[in-house]
Design a protein around this nucleic acid. Structure first.
Lengths: 109, 109
DNA sequence: ACTAGTACATAGTAGCGCTAAGTAGTGGAA
DNA sequence: TTCCACTACTTAGCGCTACTATGTACTAGT
């Protein structure tokens, strides 16, 4: 990751993961793969797992352990009501910020 | 500031300030005021000054000291070539990130 | 036995915005 | 003339988050 991207992900990655979880539950390894496919090609595994621990402790997701055919058991995370609410606030904050920034983009030159 | 916004500003605030500096030089107090007017209503003064120290040390801006009629001398910052280059990279990173996130926004629901 | 892929965990580090407290200068109100 | 408000800049310490690095554990193929 570039250093810029690393800093920018602070505060947005949580929202991104919550958004990924909307509709369909997922487990850590799966989420990491998804993120990498969607362009965050060198997201660190540890980053994702640490984030998942965090959002679980904040009570934004429900967790269920399920056996895997190919390795250790998976921890499947699904968004709960509190998580959905947090996600909504994420969108509000994001929209606000991105509007200001886009405005600055227009101004220069 | 909400905690979400605080985290989101990490990595974007520097770009925002660099963008503000495009075209017209400005000093710290002025930049803080500008940011507050543009919606970042409770940006901490210390945050801005610390950021200015940082971008000066990274060599992204030129600094000139000018007397003020109303207080201590001002430190006027202007974007230099390296700063303009950094700003360009900021836009690239921002565009990439915001496209991914906007895409997620469309997907849900 | 070895390797690769799947799956999760965590201690330590760096970077950045915030808090809080300070210094310094000017002008107006009490 | 004392006090306050505004202007203007500085900096130590804190909390949060992504990254680095390393480890554990299970399965399947060679």
């Amino acid at each position: 990751m570039g250093k810029q991207m690393t800093e920018m992900l602070k505060g947005t990655l949580e929202g991104i993961v919550l958004a990924l979880l909307t509709g369909k539950p997922a487990y850590g390894y799966e989420i990491t793969t998804l993120l990498r496919e969607q362009g965050f090609s060198d997201i660190a595994e540890g980053t994702v797992y640490a984030l998942l621990v965090r959002i679980e402790q904040k009570g934004l997701v429900d967790v269920e352990k399920r056996p895997s055919e190919k390795g250790p058991p998976r921890k499947v995370y699904s968004l709960n009501d509190q998580g959905r609410q947090e996600l909504q606030e994420f969108w509000k904050t994001w929209t606000f910020l991105s509007e200001r920034i886009e405005q600055l983009n227009g101004k220069e030159k």
